[in-house]
C-alpha cells in the first residue's frame, strides 16, 4: 500500500515535469528568430506562398492558441507534420528512435555493470593500486570530451587497427529489417539471425564506449564514495562484532545501503547521455533520432524539434521513474518517508 502511494506521487510529479517541459520548449522554439515557413520553402518562394504555408501551419495565430493546438495534438499522440520530410513527425520518430534507444540503453547498461564493480573494487582496496587505477580512470573519462573520444576510437579501432566498423548500425552488405521492436539486438535474436546479432554488436561497440566512458567513471566514483561512507557506519562495526563474515558484510550489509547514490546518478546521467548521443550519432553516422533532431533544429522545423524534445523528455522521465521505484525497493527509508511526506 505504502508503495502504491509512493509510486502514485512519483507519476504525478513526472506528468508535471513533462507539462513544464512542453511549455519551455514551445516558448524557446517560437522565440528563436527565423521564419519556419520561409526556411522550409527556400529563398525563391514568393511572399504569398510563405503566407499560405504560415496559415496552414497556424503560425499567424496568437501564441497561446498555437500552444493549445500543439497540446491537443500531443494529448492525442499527434506530433504534427515535419516541414522537411513532409511526413508525420510520429512516423519520423518511430523510424529513428529505436536506433537511439538501442545505443543509449546499451550505453547505460554497460556503464552501470562496469562502473559499479569498479567502484566496489576501489572501495575494497582503498588507497591501494586498484583504487588509484579506478580513480585515475574516472577522472580521465570525465574530462575527455565525448567528441574527442569518439574520434580517437574511430581512428584507433577503425583505421589503425582496423578491427571494428566505424559507421552505421549494420554493414550495407547485410540487409535486415528490424521490424518487430526496432532494436537490432532483439529482432535479430527473434528471427534467429546470429550473423546480424554479431554485426550489430560490433557496430554498437565503439559508439557505446565513446558515449558511456564518462558515465561509467561517474558511477564508479559515486559507488566508491558511497561504499566508503557506509563502511564507517556503526552497523558495519556491529556486524563485525557479531561475526558476520567479511564477504557477506561487503556485498550485503554495505552494498545495499550504498546503492542509492549510484542508482540516482545513473538516472541523472541519462539526460547528458541523450545530449551526447547527438554528437556520437553524427560522428558514427548512426541513423538515430539525434541526427534527425539536429537537422530539425538547424532548419527550424518546429514540429520536429518539439517532437524530438518531447520524446527525449518522456524517455528521461520514464527512466527516472523507474530509478525512483528501484531506489524505493533498495532502501525502505525512502519508500516509507516518501509515502508519509
Amino acid at each position: 500500500m505504502e508503495f502504491l502511494v509512493f509510486l502514485g506521487r512519483r507519476v504525478l510529479w513526472s506528468l508535471l515535469v513533462l507539462f513544464g517541459l512542453s511549455v519551455v520548449i514551445f516558448t524557446i522554439a517560437r522565440v528563436v528568430p527565423g521564419d519556419p515557413a520561409r526556411m522550409a520553402l527556400g529563398p525563391r518562394a514568393s511572399a504569398e506562398q510563405v503566407q499560405a504555408l504560415q496559415e496552414t501551419l497556424g503560425l499567424n495565430r496568437p501564441l497561446w492558441e498555437q500552444y493549445g493546438l500543439f497540446l491537443s495534438g500531443l494529448a492525442q499522440g499527434d506530433l504534427g507534420r515535419s516541414l522537411l520530410t513532409a511526413q508525420s513527425v510520429n512516423v519520423d520518430i518511430a523510424r529513428t528512435f529505436p536506433a537511439t534507444f538501442e545505443l543509449v540503453l546499451c550505453t547505460i547498461v554497460l556503464a552501470f555493470v562496469l562502473g559499479v564493480p569498479l567502484g566496489v573494487a576501489a572501495a575494497r582496496w582503498k588507497d591501494r593500486w586498484p583504487d588509484n587505477l579506478v580513480r585515475a580512470l574516472a577522472i580521465v573519462s570525465a574530462v575527455t570530451p565525448t567528441f574527442f573520444l569518439a574520434l580517437l576510437l574511430q581512428i584507433l579501432a577503425g583505421y589503425v587497427l582496423n578491427i571494428l566498423p566505424t559507421t552505421g548500425r549494420l554493414p550495407a552488405s547485410l540487409p535486415f529489417q528490424a521490424d518487430i521492436t526496432g532494436l537490432l539486438l532483439i529482432d535479430s535474436l527473434i528471427r534467429g539471425r546470429g550473423d546480424v546479432f554479431a554485426e550489430a554488436v560490433r557496430h554498437l561497440l565503439l559508439p557505446t564506449i565513446a558515449l558511456g566512458a564518462a558515465t561509467m567513471g561517474q558511477i564508479a566514483r559515486i559507488t566508491r564514495a558511497s561504499l566508503i561512507d557506509v563502511s564507517r557506519q556503526d552497523y558495519i562495526e556491529a556486524a563485525r562484532a557479531f561475526g558476520v563474515p567479511d564477504r557477506l558484510r561487503m556485498f550485503k550489509y554495505m552494498l545495499r545501503p550504498a546503492f542509492v547514490p549510484p542508482l540516482t546518478i545513473t538516472g541523472l546521467e541519462f539526460a547528458s547521455l541523450i545530449g551526447n548521443a547527438f554528437v556520437v550519432e553524427l560522428i558514427f553516422s548512426w541513423p538515430g533520432m539525434a541526427s534527425y533532431g539536429v537537422r530539425a533544429i538547424t532548419q527550424k522545423d518546429l514540429n520536429a524539434i518539439m517532437g524530438v524534445v518531447m520524446v527525449s523528455g518522456v524517455f528521461f522521465v520514464l527512466v527516472n521513474l523507474l530509478i525512483d521505484v528501484l531506489v524505493g525497493v533498495v532502501d525502505p527509508r525512502i519508500r516509507i518517508r516518501g509515502a508519509r511526506a
Binding site: 556503526d234 552497523y235 556491529a238 562484532a241 557479531f242 558476520v244 527509508r333
Partner: peptide, 28 residues
Amino acid sequence: SMVFQDPMSSLNPVFTIQDQLGTILKYA
C-alpha cells in the same frame, strides 16, 4: 557479545530486524 551504544546508527537501515538477527544467528 556486545550491546551497541547508538540505537539510531547500529542497525542496518535497509534490512528488516528479522533479516539482521537471522543473519547473525545463522553465522553464529
